[in-house]
Amino acid sequence: MIRTHRPRSLDLLNTRGHRSGLALFMVIVVAHWAEHLAQAAQIYIFNWPIPEARGVLGLPFPWLVTSEWMHYGYALLMLVGLLLLLPGFTGRSRTWWKISLGIQIWHHFEHLLLLLQALSGMNIGGGDAPTSLVQLLVPRVELHLLYNALVFAPMVVAVLLHRRPRADERAAMACGCAAHEDEPEHVR
């Protein structure tokens, strides 16, 4: 007989540790957004020269902006986080979290496609440069933010539904993420 055991740490992450893990993951995701938004505001609202516009953390740590591995590392972190935290979701929130995960998997497939073109020297559509499938519709420059937005939106819906589950969803939850049951509001 073959017995399958999920790693104990994964069980822990999706039960007692789900709330903390999810909070940490969302802090990283929101901080990433805030950095992008800060950098964009420096360029497009405060009119800083592009080389000087490095977001907030990029000012003391310029390598955060220039490192090409940071970009892919973050995308990988998103994928791993979405996968690891999935078992803790139930009902509608699980569906939305899966949508976010699906888009992130597609994002990685696009990266793989770009990498294969760069390595083989054969480009989609016979173009001069490696092209991703979505890039045939959306310019390359805006793609990064588009993917982040597409992954972020269903993630937010999933978290909100996870915090406020229906009774059947709450019963199936093994974590302490749900907001507490009704308490009367004190009107002073």
Binding site: I50, P51, E68, H71, Y72, H111, L113, L114, L115, L116, Q117, A118, L119, A129, P130, S132, R140, V141, H144
Partner: peptide, 13 residues
């Protein structure tokens, strides 16, 4: 041009 390169592709200004 000022380019940011990622795995397999780059974005230029």
């Amino acid at each position: 041009s000022d380019c940011v390169s990622h795995l397999g592709h780059s974005s230029c200004t």
